[in-house]
Amino acid sequence: MPREREQLTKSCEILSVEDLWVEYRSPRGTVKAVRGVSFDLHKEETLALIGESGSGKTTLGMALIRMTPKSGSVPRGRIIYRRDGEMYDVLGLDKEALRKFHWQECAMVFQSSLNAFNPVLRIWDHFHDTARAHGRVSQQALRERAMHLFKLVQLDPERVIDAFPHELSGGMRQRVLLALGLLLDPQILLLDEPTTALDILTQRTVIDLLRRLREELGFSLIFVSHDLSLAAELANRVATMYAGKIVELGDVHDIFYRPRHPYTLGLIKAVPTVTGAFRELASIPGSPPDLVDLPSGCKFQERCPFADERCRKEEPELEGMGANHSVACFKWRQVSLEKEAAHA
């Protein structure tokens, strides 16, 4: 992406998350799933939230649209949404305003594409219901819009529109969901593991499609994934999550080629590539911490080769280091030195 455009888009934040916390009640105690997350989403950008299971990435995604399950709560934080000079806190919306926010402003596509549909309704009914719930009822216009969207996502409109969900393959369902998500022309599209259950060739279609749609329609994309290659492929910016916190946030090239957090570095070193040279891989020792009983200090220190006394006592906060790159690590200078040494 050219630098100039990056500068331009930077000023247009459409979503600003400030110190967001999400907790779940569990028999063992309070699960601190998201702990003080702050970030901005810019206009027409693609932001990847990367992390392993239990890192809080899906919880964060759900909290952004106020879809936290009943056992969860948001004790603190603000989610400022902006459109056409107006702005409001998503956490402060009443039921009716929230209903409008969903789909018209921010649409979401969930992980399991089969479970996202009502199995006894045809695809057309899903479109019709969604449109009616948002006050658009002209059948003719809606049908045309749906047909147009199916073509955009490379589906045969005639075959799909009157089909039941089970009659479509996983890749087709995923594309129908994308079309449904775009029905009301939202400003933000939120995707949870958009390609995880798909086969390689189908996955490729969905990735290319997402890139093209985002460019053509100009929405902003946030996706949650454990798959680093998806972030490398699609994202402008990447946020790495660990134990409920964003530990590193930066331009996709900075994250992959100049990581500053030992966890990001560890993830990159653990993932093989198919093409390119055969390189030695290294795993991260240990396993993620228990979110009910978090250790003191930095939550990664038990697995971190750089950790020292300070890391065991104090938890580092996400801090900017210039050039749109921030990291939550006391040792980031050493991490970047190691990465450079590995490159040399």
Binding site: S169, T202, Q203, R204, T205, A231, A232, E233, F256, G276
Partner: peptide, 28 residues
């Protein structure tokens, strides 16, 4: 060849410059 060309790689420059093989049909 199609599989190898379609796989996304965990390396932004590598994956964005990969040559893609276009299949004639998406359906298995």
């Amino acid at each position: 060849q199609a599989l190898l060309s379609a796989i996304p790689e965990a390396d932004p420059n590598l994956t964005r410059n990969k040559e893609r093989i276009k299949l004639r049909s998406l359906d298995v």
